[in-house]
Nucleic acid binder design. Structure first.
Length: 421
RNA sequence: GGUGGAGUCGCCUAGUGGCCGAGGGCGCACGCCUCGAAAGCGUGUGAAGGGCAACCUUCCGUGGGUUCAAAUCCCACCUCCACCGCCA
């Protein structure tokens, strides 16, 4: 949810933001008009209501003919108040509905345009040069007895898999390493619920344009989360945080569920795009004025994790049209996948400014004692997909895979050896 | 899943239709007192929206309803607690 008062003061800012996202900027005029009408309807209702209360009180103090007269007036006011209230409510609902469809204002500097208009900020490391034909991650995973997609499909369908033996160890090691790094920097590790109520899912902005991506359990009116960002954002919903406690930083470890609707035929091989995976996700609540700096801090922590697994990657500044509903700015780190000859997303960090907090009611008390909305940010420290980049980049001619040095203590193996020939 | 009880201002609590336009206590803030503190005394103490402001309106778990008027009466739902059943 964007700030209505800020919109009143500077509507051009939202117009520019909408255009950069490739979305309709006429919504601005509609919002301003609705807001104007809503406020005047509200004033009308409030004045009538005040008169009704005064009249009602004088009824109880009067008697006889005077009482009858006041009673008649009070009845009349009662009808008028009901009508005025209904009108104010109707306009408020209309405005809310219009506001709900408006994505966050983009941060200054975010590139305009769509998916392909990202800006490459940095390339780290160099793609490995193999003197043999590299195997893709699934072939390696099967060879090593680490990934079983056939049985995943048998039991649960397409885009499901088992991580077996060394594969399971690799994932646990990676995620444990992520938690260890999070602890090192003072983040609080969290294991959150992964089924959430509609208001939490909606509050984080996932029931808008991407609602089809979300698993829904209608019998219980719950949603399966696609990232622990959702329960971590809901954690402090409807709270007023102590300003001195900020920033609050969490690292959530959770399974993530995605329907992958509309991606039929894309990445059908292996574990690049799956319905269920695990992730360690950083989540920060901070003052809005500190959000930009915090965003860069999260990005740095992602870079540190990527350095530990020793895969070549690049950092992109996502274009406005490819930002989620809630994000004002987003940086993705994409690892080199040798058999695809391209970079694939391993991490994503978003600055959601006060957008999510406004919907979820997350506030803090500032130095003056006034409640203000907090900014929220999130960023990836590790996911199942990282296994793809690790296997492919560290493979050797015989099909074995060298475990990156930093990861070895967590995996308990130096090299993953082929078991199936 | 069943039965019973409960949900009021940060916490505890008063409150059975108009004097609740929510009282009291604790906590907190400020002031007085004090060398300083404690105690005591006094004042203040929520959120949202509108308004330049004075101020007004909304909020007593949520949503409906009755009434000129609802924390209070009626209906439904939610949450918590207790017990019972079922499952692991």
């Amino acid at each position: 949810m964007i700030d209505l008062r800020a919109l009143r003061e500077d509507p051009d800012r939202l117009r520019a933001s909408q255009r950069a996202r490739g979305e309709d900027d006429k919504v601005v005029d509609r919002l301003l008009d609705l807001d104007e009408r809503r406020r005047s309807a509200l004033t009308r209702f409030e004045n009538l209501r005040a008169e009704q209360k005064t009249t009602g009180r004088s009824v109880s103090r009067s008697s006889g003919a005077e009482r009858e007269e006041l009673l008649a007036r009070a009845k009349e006011l009662s009808t008028q108040v009901k009508a005025a209230e209904a009108e104010a409510e109707r306009l408020a609902e209309e405005l809310d509905a219009a506001m709900a469809g408006v994505p966050n204002l983009i941060e200054d500097g975010a590139p305009a345009g769509g998916v392909d208009d990202y800006v490459v900020l940095e390339e780290v490391g160099t793609p490995p040069a193999f003197d043999f034909e590299p195997r893709d991650h699934l072939e390696l995973g099967e060879l090593l007895g680490a990934i079983d997609t056939e049985r995943g499909a048998k039991v649960s369908g397409a885009r499901f898999y088992y991580l077996t033996g060394p594969g399971a160890r690799l994932e646990l090691g990676l995620l444990n390493m992520a938690i260890a790094q999070a602890l090192e920097y003072g983040l609080t590790p969290m294991i959150p619920p992964v089924l959430v109520k509609p208001e939490t899912m909606a509050g984080t902005g996932f029931l808008g344009a991407h609602a089809a991506e979300v698993y829904h359990l209608p019998q219980d009116e719950l949603y399966l989360v696609g990232t622990s960002e959702v329960p971590l954002a809901g954690y402090h919903a409807d709270e007023i945080l102590d300003g001195a406690s900020l920033p609050l930083r969490y690292a959530g470890w959770s399974p993530c569920f995605r329907r992958e609707a509309g991606s039929y035929g894309k990445d059908t091989r292996g574990i690049i795009r799956v319905h269920q995976f695990q992730k360690v996700e950083m989540f920060t609540y901070c003052r809005p004025e500190d959000a930009h700096e915090e965003h860069l801090r999260l990005l740095n922590w992602e870079k540190e994790m990527l350095a530990k697994v020793e895969v070549p990657y690049r950092i992109i500044d996502t274009a406005a049209g490819d930002l989620g509903t809630s994000a004002a700015r987003k940086y993705d780190c994409e690892a080199w996948v040798p058999t695809q000859g391209r970079y694939r997303e391993l991490t994503s960090t978003s600055n959601c400014t006060e957008f999510q907090a406004r919907r979820l009611g997350v506030r803090y008390r500032d130095a003056d004692g006034r409640p203000r909305y907090a900014a929220t940010l999130n960023g990836t420290l590790g996911t199942t997909r990282w296994i793809v980049a690790i296997l492919e980049n560290h493979q050797r001619a015989d099909g074995s895979v060298v475990v990156p040095a930093a990861l070895r203590p967590y995996v308990g193996l130096d090299v993953l050896e082929p078991v199936n020939r």
